[in-house]
C-alpha cells in the first residue's frame, strides 16, 4: 500500500538518540531513546517514576530540552511548543479565573486569532459538548469535580485541533469510576477523530484499553526504552467486555511482569551501550510482529531498528 510505504519512510513523530541529564555530576535520567509514532496511532508509555517519561513528553511538547538527541515532528525538528501539539496536563492546568468556556475560548482564540467572538464560542461549545460538559460552560474550574476539570482540559486540547495530542497521566488523580467514564469518552473521540496520541500512564489496564502500542521504560537513572508492546486486541474495545478476552490477560501479565521484574533487571545490567534496540513484543501472539495479527496488523506497524540507523 503506497500509504504504508509513505508512513514507513516518513513517520509523523521521530525520536532519535534522546537523553537527558539534569546535572553533569549525575548519571542521565534516560539515554538513547529511539521511537516513532505514525499518524493516527495511540501510543502509551509506561515506566516507574523517575524513568523520565514526563521529560520525554515535555521534549515532544517543546516545553523542555533534551541533553542530546532530536525529536522531529512532521519533518520539522521540535524547538519549542506549538499549536500543532495539544497538551493535556496531569493536573488539568485550567486557568482558574476563567470560566470553562472562557478557558476553551482562550485556546481557540490562540489558534484562530482572526475568528469572531461568536465563531470562537461556537467552536468551543462543540468540544465542550463532545466531553459532555455543555451545561457547565459558565462555571469556574473550582466549581467542577476533578473529572470534569480533566474533561475540560481534554476539550481544550482537542479544540485547537492539534496534529498530535500529548497527555501526561491525564487520569492519574481521578477515582476509578470517573476515570473509566472519561476513558470511554476518550476512546470514542479518538475513534471518531483518528487523533494521534502520545500518552503517559501508570495504569496497565488503561494502556491496554486505549493504546495501539505500549512503550515500556526501564528504571532510571540510565533508563531506556526496553520494549514496545503491540496491543493485539481488536481496535474496537469496550471497557466492560475487554477483560473477557483471554488475550487481555496475556498482555496484562506481560506488562506487569515487566514492571515488577524486568525493568529492574535491565537497570541492573548496566548503562546502555548505544546498540540496544527495544524488543518488539506481541504477547500471546507467538509468531511476533507481522504474524496473524488480523485486521489490526495493517494499523499497528512496529518499526524496530538499532539506534542511530538511518530512516
Amino acid at each position: 500500500m503506497p500509504n504504508e510505504v509513505l508512513r514507513r519512510s516518513a513517520p509523523f513523530l521521530k525520536i532519535e538518540g534522546l537523553s537527558k541529564r539534569y546535572r553533569d555530576d549525575l548519571p542521565p535520567v534516560f539515554e538513547n531513546i529511539n521511537f516513532r509514532i505514525d499518524r493516527g496511532e495511540f501510543v502509551c508509555i509506561i515506566g516507574h517514576s523517575g524513568c523520565g517519561k514526563s521529560t520525554i513528553l515535555n521534549v515532544v511538547a517543546g516545553l523542555e530540552e533534551a541533553t542530546s538527541g532530536v525529536a522531529v515532528i512532521d519533518n520539522k525538528e521540535i524547538t519549542g511548543p506549538g499549536l500543532d501539539r495539544g497538551v493535556v496536563f496531569q493536573n488539568h492546568s485550567l486557568l482558574p479565573w476563567l470560566t470553562v468556556e472562557q478557558n476553551i475560548a482562550f485556546a481557540v482564540r490562540s489558534r484562530h486569532p482572526d475568528w469572531s467572538r461568536q465563531k470562537v464560542a461556537e467552536h468551543g461549545a462543540r468540544f465542550l459538548e463532545m466531553v459532555g460538559l455543555k451545561g457547565a460552560s459558565r462555571k469556574k474550574p473550582s466549581e467542577l469535580s476533578g473529572g470534569m476539570k480533566q474533561r475540560v482540559g481534554i476539550a481544550r486540547a482537542f479544540a485547537i485541533e492539534p496534529q498530535m495530542l500529548l497527555m501526561d497521566e491525564p487520569f492519574g488523580a481521578l477515582d476509578a469510576l470517573t476515570r473509566g467514564v472519561i476513558q470511554d469518552e476518550l476512546l470514542k473521540i479518538c475513534a471518531a477523530t483518528r487523533q494521534t496520541v502520545f500518552m503517559i500512564t501508570h495504569d496497565v489496564d488503561e494502556a491496554i484499553l486505549l493504546a495501539d502500542k505500549i512503550m515500556l521504560m526501564s528504571n532510571g537513572p540510565h533508563a531506556r526504552l526496553a520494549e514496545i508492546v503491540v496491543n493485539t486486541l481488536p481496535r474496537e474495545r469496550n471497557r466492560e467486555t475487554i477483560h473477557h478476552d483471554p488475550q487481555f490477560y496475556r498482555i496484562r501479565n506481560h506488562l506487569v511482569d515487566f514492571l515488577v521484574r524486568r525493568s529492574k533487571l535491565i537497570q541492573a545490567a548496566g548503562p546502555a551501550t548505544g546498540e540496544e534496540a527495544p524488543v518488539i513484543a506481541t504477547p500471546g501472539v507467538e509468531s511476533g510482529a507481522g504474524g496473524d495479527a488480523g485486521p489490526r496488523a495493517g494499523r499497528v506497524k512496529i518499526v524496530a531498528r538499532g539506534a542511530g540507523s538511518p530512516c
Binding site: 516545553l63 511548543p81 497538551v87 492546568s93 486557568l95 485547537i160
Partner: peptide, 27 residues
C-alpha cells in the same frame, strides 16, 4: 505564577502581551 499556566500559554503559542495581560496579570 504557576508554571503550568505559563506552559498552557506556551503550548498555545500565546504572544508576550497576551500572556502578560491574560495569564500573568490575572494569576
Amino acid at each position: 505564577v504557576r508554571k503550568d499556566w505559563l506552559n498552557v500559554a506556551r503550548t498555545l503559542e500565546v504572544g508576550p502581551l497576551r500572556k502578560a495581560f491574560l495569564v500573568i496579570l490575572p494569576a
